[in-house]
Design a protein around this nucleic acid. Structure first.
Length: 527
RNA sequence: GGCCCUAUCGUCUAAUGGUUAGGACAUCAGGUUUUCAACCUGACGACCGGGGUUCGACUCCCCGUAGGGCCGCCA
């Protein structure tokens, strides 16, 4: 029987990343689901940094995690204050485990005193040999309990001698059952667990203990995490029992898989959020995409802004099985969001990529600011290093706008528009030829273009007018009205590319003088 | 090896015992376009296998099979 669903009110959930690497896509997905759950039910979302492993934890990674979540606008109600990262926020104590030794100490002492935990002096080598042996004979590898009943005097003697020790938890026998909010009923035989290590020393807990204590201290009501934690859940439940603590609800999310259907990891290529940010994926596209990896609303809509996700979210509609990270779908969603951006916004996001590519440089002026990929306010005027000309933000917006519907992600922009910022284009002369055109055909076409376009009055130099006169001319020229005989050479002469935006729009931005120059340059190429 | 989880088009998924098994991405074809993209139309394409339960199973049960996760003094 399904347990009757409890009403969810003001839940307290958390994301607890360890700063041992760059912010991972999987962590973000878990953070997002926790965030959606908290917001949906009017609860709190807490960020806790799990840095008990001093060797591997680095502040640099912590910063990356905070930055990434902020970029995605997954905001936490309690946790490290990103504006003052060296201070703490909230009433629940420090939000880094490294700052909570005092808290852990009292719990570990309690367990040692009550005998639910004990010191173990076995060497790592012995333990490893034991594990290998057990697996080889088909047993569940677990601690054999060698130190579980050491006389008190022996323990004290060893400790006094400074013999390396670890603290273990008596897990006992019997079965542990919990009702997972996503997976349903899950049962484990705790006899198979063995006495697990819970602390390195009386003030340094290991993951399972630290998580149990922190979740209790921070009054976490629902633990929503990846299903790679399912096997940790019985251990944590047993610890809660030993400590007399209540059990939070558990919900285990299916994992995100790589193309080979194994857990998404570095060997699948890009797994850090940074990578996608730098490549020019929009945060709202990432959110939308990640939300649909393992969840769906009960309709066919696929484009969801964060507020709609919050409205519709529920754990019941979470998938039980893992999902493959599908880059093509991300590209499609990102393209969709790009197409729906205002041109001003899109230019704001795209211009930093042009700067980075060296196509333009910001100019400092009174009131102007240096632009950067961080999304800093843009200046009004830029310098084009190659041509030594100035270009204003309006023109840049026009350029970006030509490629708005062609972009999958922002970093594609420079290679698409570089021809606007060059004196001379580098392309093979064959590119000028449309279908079976001959050398004389091309020369005729180019000559014709120069004539028609050269005669356009400066005031009439606009894409609408150019299209009107050129399309008419093109229809008269090519066989069977094939406009390509005029328009293809025009487009390639202006852009130097096999694919591009329409020539009329390019010509408008280039201006009459440059357009005619490029036609001339094309003619020279033919000689 | 042990324990646990999972199983619908290539991918993400809908379906909660009765549907021609629906949608999206990708792919392919056509339309539009000088090109590419966008857009429109269409095509291709799936219930892992075997037993039950039932008048009737993608849906429920069991057994296989396959995939995945976990078995640290990491988290």
């Amino acid at each position: 029987m399904e347990a009757t669903a409890k009403k969810i009110e003001n839940p307290r959930v958390r994301i607890a990343p360890s700063p041992t690497g760059l912010l991972h896509i999987g962590t973000v997905r878990t953070a997002l689901f926790n965030y959606l759950f908290a917001k949906k039910y009017n609860g709190s979302f807490i960020l806790r940094i799990e840095d008990t492993d001093k060797e591997r934890s680095q502040r640099e990674y912590e910063n990356d995690i905070l930055d990434g979540l902020q970029w995605l606008k997954i905001v936490w109600d309690e946790g490290l204050n990103p504006e003052a990262r060296d201070e703490y926020l909230g009433d629940y104590g420090p939000y880094r485990q490294s700052g909570r030794a005092g808290i852990y100490q009292s719990y570990i002492k309690k367990m040692l005193d009550q005998g639910t935990a004990y010191y173990c002096f076995c060497s790592k080598e012995d333990l490893e040999a034991q594990r290998q042996y057990q697996m080889s004979i088909g047993q569940a590898p677990k601690y054999n309990g060698k130190c579980s009943n050491l006389p008190k005097e022996t323990v004290e003697k060893y400790l006094k001698e400074g013999k390396p020790a670890v603290i273990r938890f008596r897990t006992g026998g019997g079965s542990v059952v919990f009702q997972d909010l996503i997976k349903g009923r899950i049962e484990f035989n705790s006899a198979l667990l063995g006495d697990i290590a819970i602390a390195k020393d009386p003030s340094t807990p290991l993951y399972n203990l630290a998580a149990v204590i922190d979740d209790y201290e921070m009054k976490i009501s629902h633990v929503i995490r990846g299903e790679d934690h399912i096997a940790n859940t019985p251990k944590q439940i047993l610890l809660q029992d030993a400590l007399g603590l209540p059990h939070p609800e558990y919900a285990h999310l299916p994992l995100i898989l790589g193309p080979d259907r194994s857990k998404l990891s570095k060997r699948h290529g890009a797994v850090s959020v940074n990578h996608y940010r730098e490549k020019g994926y929009l945060p709202e596209a990432m959110i939308n995409f990640l939300a649909f990896l393992g969840w769906n609303p009960d309709n066919d809509r696929e484009i969801y802004a964060i507020n709609h996700l919050i409205e519709e979210f529920s754990l019941e509609r979470c998938q039980k099985s893992s999902a493959v990270f599908n880059l093509q779908k991300l590209d499609w969603i990102n393209g969709f969001y790009i197409r729906n951006k205002s041109i001003k916004k899109l230019a704001e996001m795209g211009v930093p990529y042009l700067i980075e590519a060296g196509l333009i440089q910001p100019i400092f002026e009174t009131g102007g600011h240096l632009a950067g990929i961080g999304g800093i306010e843009l200046g009004e005027t830029y310098l084009i290093p190659e041509t030594k000309e100035k270009i204003d933000i309006i023109t840049l917006e026009n350029i970006v706008s030509l490629y708005q519907e062609r972009l999958k992600y922002l970093s594609e922009l420079p290679e698409l528009v570089d021809f606007f910022f060059k004196n001379e284009l580098d392309y093979p002369q064959e590119l000028l030829f449309w279908k079976d055109m001959s050398q004389t055909d091309i020369e005729k076409a180019l000559g014709g273009l120069e004539g028609v376009m050269g005669a356009v009055k400066p005031n009439d130099w606009a894409r609408g007018h150019l299209e009107e006169i050129l399309v008419q001319r093109a229809a008269e020229m090519g066989p069977a009205g094939d406009r390509g005989y005029l328009l293809w050479p025009l487009r390639t002469a202006l852009s130097g590319k096999k694919f591009s935006a329409p020539p009329f729009a390019i010509a408008e931005i280039l201006g009459k003088e440059k357009t005619l120059l490029r036609l001339k340059q094309a003619k020279e190429k033919l000689r």
